[in-house]
């Protein structure tokens, strides 16, 4: 390689490394701000600001969904299945994938009682896809051996079809 080309090579690699380093530092500094939502742990421990618009996420706790009989109001509990949980109050249309056991994002304000008054509810789905017949088969197997096959969040069990009593 001729010296001039070598010099260009060094300069180019140097430039690339500097740009990469700057980006890495910027990402490092942004830290928490890059996260889209607070996990239940942060909401319970008070890391999430009260009275400000924020997003929080978790799994809908089994049996916690209570629907109003008069309007579209609904309350439910979001949990990380590791002890941290908080209540959410919401009035509006829920996404199709909303059900007990599902990963959910809510946007709204935390009030002083630690209840999140949500203005928006989003469903998060995991990276696993499966035909319904296979799903039933696996659920049946799972009931015999209680080992979780797949999960969107650590230590969460699969949403069982019969547990989704909320879609009636």
């Amino acid at each position: 390689m001729n010296p001039k080309r070598k010099q260009r090579l060094y300069l180019t690699v140097f430039l690339f490394l500097v740009a990469g380093g700057v980006t890495a530092l910027l990402i490092q500094i942004s830290g928490e701000n890059m996260n889209m939502f607070y996990p239940p742990k942060d909401v319970v421990s008070g890391n999430a600001p009260v009275g400000e618009r924020l997003r929080a996420g978790g799994m809908v706790m089994d049996g916690s969904v209570i629907r109003s009989t008069q309007n579209l109001g609904v309350t439910f509990v979001l949990t990380d299945h590791q002890g941290a949980e908080f209540s959410v109050r919401y009035t509006g249309i829920l996404p199709d994938l909303f059900r007990e056991g599902q990963g959910i994002l809510v946007e709204g304000q935390l009030n002083n009682d630690g209840v999140l008054e949500a203005t928006e509810v989003l469903a998060k789905h995991d990276e696993n896809y499966m035909p319904p017949e296979l799903m039933e088969l696996q659920t049946a197997e799972q009931q015999q051996t209680p080992e979780p096959v797949m999960s969107a969040y650590p230590s969460s069990s699969m949403p069982l079809p019969q547990s989704s009593s909320d879609d009636s």
Binding site: I27, M34, G57, D126, E127, P131
Partner: peptide, 24 residues
């Protein structure tokens, strides 16, 4: 993987088998 996102993680990787059956 680095951040909490609404988007789900990858279903495919070079080292693990896909998170869906082959007919998918």
């Amino acid at each position: 993987e680095w951040w909490n996102t609404l988007h789900q993680p990858a279903s495919f990787s070079l080292t693990e088998k896909p998170a869906m059956p082959s007919e998918m």
